[in-house]
Design a protein around this nucleic acid. Structure first.
Lengths: 147, 147
DNA sequence: TATATTCTCTACTAAATAGGTCTTATTGGT
DNA sequence: ACCAATAAGACCTATTTAGTAGAGAATATA
């Protein structure tokens, strides 16, 4: 139930790319510095996001990473599924082959209910929602800039 | 976001104790056999539950473990907090000392919202609810017994 | 074309998690 | 008093997760 470092870093990373959507590619070194995260570790995480199709890259000087579609079309649920290796909560909920005792398992319904409430929360949010929320906060607290 | 093995085993363990509440102590070997879980690993988990005050034990022959209060008074949230070492989701939500950037953190509100929906789900369930649900299922599927 | 910049890949280390082995302490039943 | 059953503890192993180091491949720009 703890959020993995991978997921926390991954969402911060995607937020940066979302915030920059439409501009030139962002290089990992900048993000790593701003977010105080190991660049090497970020580079591993972003490869995962790339092969899932959420992110694309440009090599060479002035290269970097970009979101592959607008922030409003990227759902937080799909992000977390990619980062957590698509076993959100319980393997047995995703894949009946792992355990077909749902009928008699005394905890299955309980965990299934938990997965439902979190999935519906995650499905209701996109990267655009995070940006909007951040912009609103920036005004409120007079943060002149973030990136 | 994945449920740890520790938490899954711990809830199954507590369910067994809850189901037996009011009877004589249950020994770990029986639970381990019924639930197909390593007894040694269970014994580590239950020590944690014991020192948190959820469970008490009796040594010697015919000894074993019991819930220290009725199942209806044991909330699923407290169980999971004990098993997950009380860092549910985000350290920074529990303890502001870890990171006081909430005002400007672009992902804090998002994770905080997730913690809210799960906490309210977990708070709404007790071990008694799991028992009731199990009994209802047993009827429906004609499972003559569980324990 | 040369080069600095940036992504990509492989290999390593450290810590946490999941589990096993063996021994000791405690208690009920005979 | 003894024995069998049971909890409790110390210590070891394998796998996964988190993070580091460094070489190599691609490419925009001068």
């Amino acid at each position: 139930m703890k959020l993995s470092t991978r997921t926390r870093y991954g969402t911060r990373l995607l937020f940066e790319l979302a915030y920059n959507y439409g501009n030139k590619p962002v290089n990992l070194g900048d993000i790593a510095r701003r977010q105080s995260i190991s660049e090497k570790y970020l580079s591993k995480i972003i490869i995962q996001l790339k092969s899932a199709g959420l992110v694309k890259s440009e090599r060479g000087a002035k290269g970097g990473y970009m979101l592959s579609k607008p922030p409003s079309l990227i759902n937080m649920k799909e992000i977390i599924e990619v980062l957590e290796g698509d076993a959100l909560f319980l393997d047995c909920i995703k894949d009946k082959a792992i355990c077909d005792m749902q009928n008699m398992c005394p905890t299955y319904d309980f965990w299934h209910g938990l997965a439902e409430v979190t999935n519906s929360y995650l499905s209701s949010k996109t990267l655009q929602n995070l940006i909007d929320n951040y912009n609103k906060k920036s005004e409120k607290f007079n943060l002149a800039y973030y990136i």
